[in-house]
């Protein structure tokens, strides 16, 4: 159940899917159910973290190959609002 076993997003979703199905079948002993639940929460947090990982950022790749923050005219909030 350690973090390294969560390698990639797709795998995490697949595992979470399996856990939910197992739990929904409902024939498991309570102890096992709760262990699965714990793992499920872990996976769902991982997925959420991955989704929210990206920061909102707008960068410009210059001719020289450097990344610079975009000028405010581009990164500013929607002027239409």
């Amino acid at each position: 159940m350690s973090t390294p076993s969560i390698k990639d997003f797709e795998a995490a979703i697949a595992e979470l899917d399996g856990i939910v199905k197992k739990l929904e079948e409902g024939d498991l002993p309570l102890e096992q159910s709760l262990a699965l639940y714990e793992r499920g929460v872990q996976l769902s947090r991982f997925c959420h973290a991955r989704l929210e990982d990206a920061e909102r950022r707008i960068e410009i790749l210059t001719e020289r190959g450097e990344l610079k923050t975009a000028p405010p005219s581009l990164s500013a909030d929607d002027p239409d609002r």
Binding site: I19, V20, G26, L30, Y37, V41, S44, L51
Partner: peptide, 27 residues
Amino acid sequence: ATTEFTTRIDRLSDRLRGAVRSRVQAL
């Protein structure tokens, strides 16, 4: 695709909670 994944994860999380809740209630 990102939006789709977000929805899918949210749904799975809901089902996860629901399943454990109903298991406890069954007990």
